[in-house]
Computed example of a mutant assay.
Amino acid sequence: MDQNNHRDITAAVVHAKGEPFRLERARIRAPRADEVLVRIVATGMCHTDMIVRDQYYPVPLPAVLGHEGAGVVEAVGPLVRDLQVGDHVVLSYGHCGHCLPCGSGHASYCDEFFGRNFGGTGPDGKSALQDEAGRPLHDHFFAQSSFATYALSRENNAIRVSKEAPLELLGPLGCGIQTGAGAVINSLKVAPGSSFAAFGAGAVGLSAVMAARIAGASTIIAIDVVPSRLALAKELGATHAINSNETDPVASVREFTGKGTNYGLESTGRPEVLRQAVDALGGLGVLGVVGAPPLGVSASFDVNDLLIHGKSIRGIVEGDSIARAFIPELVNLHLQGRFPFDKLVKFYPFDAINQAAEDSERGITLKPILKIGV
């Protein structure tokens, strides 16, 4: 730390819409109140990082993104109660902890969710990061900004995990993997013996496939256009795989399930795929929507089909997960060999961040993880 209580770090900065990430020297202040300073070991890269880079969501720039961090606690603020220096943690989404949704176990629908995760500053309107010239950098992305060698988060979104687990692998549990698995287990509550269809077999969709297998679904269908993803889906528990470039996914789902699927998850963010997912539901079927298009995008469905068959459509954020409970559960399932999400990932060095982003957008890599500190 320098005389102003700042630490020198390296951070990946986005300066303008659509520009590449640039690794730069920066400074981060010491933790205050209930904050913890985390030395980042590795960070997952998620679709949301790219859509913010491209300004689908209006996060102010220049900014340090990254929201699937995993690392080691280096320092704690004076109000931190449970975490200690040396703890291994996964960083998850930000929430206030005191509004009605937070108090009722629905922190992912926090009244302050957008501001705390996409606002570009802390709740006090200030940044914790500065560039080399001392100018503020927009940060607090998902209450962490973990595309950096160090990150600040609050105690309530820094989740202690077992030191037996490989820390460099765990970051994606904080968002993408948690979203897919949580949608199945927490939101849809997929029942044993039921049918489930994942529209989109990226990291989120395949996490849902693995969770549907754990939940005991007897028919698990993966729909995508990339043959390698569909092959992996079969390896991870899908009973059927549909290439929607080659066959009508709605007709195929109905063929495999009889009258349509009991549960579905749409993770592509494409309105036309959302329509297919609704159409593929059976009577009283429930569709979860996690795919994030640009703000303002609309989708359509047949109202009478929804009405007559009692179908439901619901939005899902972060898999309805209480991260402090759910992330350790996923870690335990992984250690037991029942949730092999390591098959989704590819590691990249920090200075290859733009290659990782490109490989993700081209569908070459399902879940990039940036190795930042060892």
Rank of each mutant, 00 (worst) to 15 (best):
V303C: 09
V303F: 15
V303P: 08
V303A: 14
V303L: 15
N304V: 02
N304I: 09
D305C: 04
D305N: 15
D305R: 04
D305P: 07
D305S: 15
L306H: 05
L306F: 09
L306A: 11
L306V: 14
L307Q: 08
L307Y: 13
L307D: 11
L307S: 14
I308N: 11
I308G: 05
I308P: 04
I308M: 15
H309A: 07
H309C: 09
H309P: 01
H309Y: 10
H309I: 10
G310Q: 05
G310E: 12
G310A: 09
G310R: 06
K311W: 09
K311M: 04
K311E: 13
K311R: 13
S312Y: 13
S312E: 13
S312R: 14
S312G: 11
S312V: 07
S312M: 14
S312F: 12
S312H: 10
I313W: 14
I313S: 09
I313T: 12
I313F: 10
I313C: 11
R314Y: 05
R314P: 01
R314E: 15
R314W: 09
G315D: 12
I316C: 01
I316P: 03
I316N: 07
I316K: 05
I316R: 05
V317D: 04
E318S: 06
E318D: 04
E318N: 02
E318K: 00
G319L: 06
G319M: 03
G319T: 06
G319P: 05
D320I: 07
S321Y: 03
S321N: 09
S321L: 03
S321A: 15
S321D: 04
I322V: 12
I322R: 04
A323Q: 02
A323V: 03
A323P: 02
A323C: 06
A323S: 14
R324C: 03
R324P: 03
R324K: 12
A325F: 00
A325S: 14
A325W: 00
A325I: 04
A325Y: 07
F326N: 00
I327Y: 01
I327E: 05
I327H: 03
I327F: 01
I327T: 00
P328V: 06
P328C: 07
P328N: 10
P328I: 02
E329K: 05
E329Q: 06
E329D: 05
E329C: 04
E329H: 06
L330H: 03
L330D: 00
L330W: 02
L330M: 13
V331Q: 08
N332Q: 02
N332I: 07
N332V: 02
N332F: 06
